[in-house]
Design a protein around this nucleic acid. Structure first.
Lengths: 225, 225
DNA sequence: CCAAAAGTGTTGCACCTACACCCATGT
DNA sequence: ACATGGGTGTAGGTGCAACACTTTTGG
């Protein structure tokens, strides 16, 4: 029987940080543990699954509890359930999520992150509690894979954005430069974006703004639905 | 808290059935429920997670309990945890597995399947308990995807096999015919198989036997490991 | 006018598909 | 000999990477 087994949900939350004089960096929020095993270590946000909520709901709830926001993309990652991954028996259902950069920035400027929450660059993480390093590594691997063959990346950007901005997201996620012209064709051919009539005016030639096409977003990964 | 939540593991087990005068069919074993909700309905093999075993172990154990065999491939599929998927609160960690056709045949001829276990063609399934139809649909989708971009299919065959036999597995899984010559190049280029010096002699020109290359099998899906 | 980003066009390569063709064996 | 599956060769198509090129803005 499984009476002594508890179910937790953890969510690896990705967003972008603007850096002066450097390309945007992929970052994620961690929570400093205030109790129990691994006291004061950093951990992936999460919590116990409640009896009256589904797994997806629990992921969305804990995401909201740590960031005050709801995700533009949320997907189950993996169930971690080795016997020794925690001193007590815990099965953790891991999720990963994308938060829009503008919403995170807005949230942080009005209401700064709680004392025990901090954002870290994915390339510069602290020592983590439990097996959370594995969870993050896997989430990062899935994100990079998914970016390569779907149009997920727009989940990190505001409603409207230029192709350059989107390309920079891809570059931040994948960790390498992409050819602007080929990137344009790739995206335009995919029908994941719809062009608007607005332009972003800045230092140089104005760039057309695009909008994410919600229709296409769904049918990308197959079941479960 | 999650005291009233129980954790189960279910495994969608795939193998092949030889049919007279027809290509092999993809099939899976189901268990007739002897109790509780959905009494007498067919269900995916599984059981409660024990306190002293990991998720993978539980999947392997229940697989052995229903078939008497161990899998040539076993992978976690998804955690199903909607509140209303069962009358009591159950989170099911679903797995999917491949069994070698020759081992299943041998097992069935020496010790026939238990009373409450039966094998079904994936295209001709009975009404299922709980949300097990969704679980099977997802497992099938994953299998087909994985077959398309990895060399997993050899997990359904004996140690040594001809390229035709392997191609017929692909055809059974994908549900369409493949060009023999292109299939040969695809496989030979992938280095997933190593040629042996043996030949299968039969009605026609002898065909070289191949063996699965265990080296390559691992690094295909990335984390977790 | 110049720098720099927006956006277009072109070419070459890698890979996949379809299909023609030869090879080896059992009957 | 011939039917059948084993196995090789090749031409066309598609898609992507690389990169030359034109356009449009701010300074």
């Amino acid at each position: 029987m499984s009476e002594g087994i508890r179910v937790a949900v953890s969510t690896v939350i990705f967003s972008l940080r603007s850096r002066p004089d450097a390309p945007d960096a992929l970052m994620l929020p961690l929570v400093r543990r205030t109790r129990g095993p691994f006291l004061n270590h950093w951990a992936v946000p999460g919590g116990w699954l409640r009896e009256d909520e589904g797994l997806d709901d629990a992921a969305a709830r804990t995401l909201d509890e740590t960031t005050g926001l709801s995700a533009s993309y949320l997907e189950q990652l993996y169930a971690f359930g080795e016997v020794d991954r925690s001193p007590t028996r815990v099965v953790s259902i891991a999720y990963w999520a994308l938060l829009r950069q503008d919403l995170v920035d807005a949230q942080l400027s009005t209401r700064p992150a709680p004392e025990n929450v901090a954002w870290f660059d994915v390339d510069d993480l602290p020592t983590l509690a439990f097996d959370h390093d594995r969870i993050i590594a896997y989430a990062l691997w899935r994100l990079r894979n998914k970016v390569a063959y779907s149009r997920i990346a727009a989940g990190l950007l505001p409603d409207e954005f230029t192709l350059s901005e989107l390309r920079e997201v891809y570059e931040a996620v994948l960790g390498r430069r992409l050819d602007p012209s080929n990137f344009r064709r790739l995206i335009e051919g995919s029908e994941a974006l719809v062009p608007t009539e607005s332009f972003r005016t800045g230092k140089h030639r104005p760039a057309r703004l695009f909008r994410y096409n919600a229709e296409v977003a769904l049918a990308e990964t197959g079941p479960p639905t």
